[in-house]
Structures are given as structure tokens and as C-alpha cells.
Design a protein around this nucleic acid. Structure first.
Length: 202
DNA sequence: ACACTGATTAACT
DNA sequence: GTTAATCAGTGTG
């Protein structure tokens, strides 16, 4: 049995938790089965001191989960279409979170493809909105405790080691100078792959 | 490979 | 009324 991440793993600041989550395994129950994927891309968001964070302007109905304890899921709906999955980090009240941006699918890939409309494997989970569609994550999972194995959503440590590179965060208009995006440069499942400016590889 | 755009909704100002 | 931590499709080179 793989080790499930505990509360204390999430209680550090988001810029530490974000790279820590690279190589960890996201598990989502769907019926009797479990969908699994290795996290290959994350972004850190600060609280009221980060202009790019949803929490920047204080607590609202939408972001209230961010102001709670670490280790809970913050799922938000955006652009009229998409959900995005975050994990609350840091001390209670600081409203920090880590956005899960991309995964490498490893279990129940067929089920993910069905949810996604049978796109190619490389396009199943290479973006935050795509992950939620493939894993059937929506606002019902907002506020879930990720530190219990009985939860329908949690993260495990399989001891997978990955290299981690940083860059500016994607899709934001403020605080663009912060290098708070973390990803595995060798993974084909990272989002915006063609814009990465990486050395050639297959 | 790149730039641009429309889709569609909840929550915010 | 405006905005948004996105995506898929289209057109161009």
C-alpha cells in the first residue's frame, strides 16, 4: 500500500508544496474503480500578498476553502466551461494553494478517454481543465479532505523521483515575474509543451 | 509552429 | 456589466 500524503505534507508554503507534488500520484474514485495519474506540473499561489491569487482580495464565497486548513481540495469553475483542482496549503487563514496543472495517466486510461471524448493519450490530462474533465472532478469535490483514504480524492507517494524545472505561471496577468510554475521537463504530458523552449528530446 | 477567437457561466464590482 | 489560474478550433506561414 502506498503512503497517502498527510496534513503536515500540505502545511508548508505553496512554493514548497508545489515542487514536492511533482511525481506524486493523484487518485480519484469513480464508481468502484480508481483513476490514477502521476503529477507532472503544478503552480503555487500565495494568499493575500499574491496579486495573481484568487485570495488576493480577501475571502469570498468562491475562495472560502482556501482560507481553511491545508490538505483540502479547492475546485473552482472558470471561463464558463472548466473546473480546476487545487490543494490548499500553508497555515490556516493564509489562503495559499497549489494548482494541479498536468498528469501522466497511469490507471483507467480508457475511462479518462471516454470522459474526454476519446482524444489521444497525450491530450487527456495535459492541462488543469482537462484533468478535471478526465477525472470527473467538479464543484462537488470542493472542500474535500485529501488526507483520508476514505475520500474520493487523495494523493499518494509512490517514491517516484522526477527532475523539476520552473517558469512563470500560465494564464495570469498579474505577478508574472514569479517563477512559481513547476514541471517535469522530460514529460510529454506537461501543458503548453511547444512553448517550453526545451532542449530536443523525444 | 504560431496567433487569434468564440464558447458560456458564476461570482465579483 | 465585466472578468476569468481554459480549451478547441481556425487560419496563416
Amino acid at each position: 500500500m502506498h503512503k497517502i500524503l498527510e496534513r503536515k505534507d500540505y502545511e508548508k508554503s505553496s512554493d514548497l508544496v508545489a515542487p514536492f507534488l511533482i511525481g506524486k500520484v493523484l487518485v480519484k474514485s469513480l464508481g468502484k474503480r480508481k483513476l490514477k495519474g502521476v503529477i507532472v506540473e503544478t503552480e503555487a499561489y500565495g494568499g493575500q500578498n499574491d496579486p495573481a491569487s484568487h485570495a488576493f482580495k480577501g475571502k469570498t464565497k468562491r475562495n472560502e476553502v482556501m482560507f481553511g486548513k491545508a490538505g483540502y481540495a479547492y475546485v473552482y469553475f472558470t471561463y464558463g466551461f472548466h473546473h480546476c483542482l487545487n490543494v490548499v496549503t500553508g497555515k490556516e487563514g493564509k489562503a495559499e494553494a497549489v494548482l494541479i496543472r498536468a498528469l501522466e495517466p497511469i490507471e483507467r486510461i480508457d475511462r479518462m478517454a471516454r470522459s474526454r471524448g476519446d482524444v489521444s493519450k497525450g491530450n487527456l490530462t495535459n492541462g488543469p481543465g482537462k484533468i478535471c474533465q478526465a477525472f470527473a472532478i467538479n464543484s462537488r469535490q470542493n472542500g474535500l479532505d485529501l488526507t483520508k483514504r476514505s475520500s474520493e480524492l487523495y494523493i499518494e507517494d509512490w517514491g517516484i523521483s522526477k527532475s523539476v524545472q520552473t517558469s512563470a505561471r500560465i494564464g495570469i496577468t498579474r505577478a508574472v515575474e514569479k517563477k512559481w510554475r513547476f514541471f517535469d521537463p522530460s514529460s510529454e504530458f506537461v501543458s503548453h509543451r511547444s512553448k517550453l523552449n526545451l532542449p530536443q528530446e523525444k
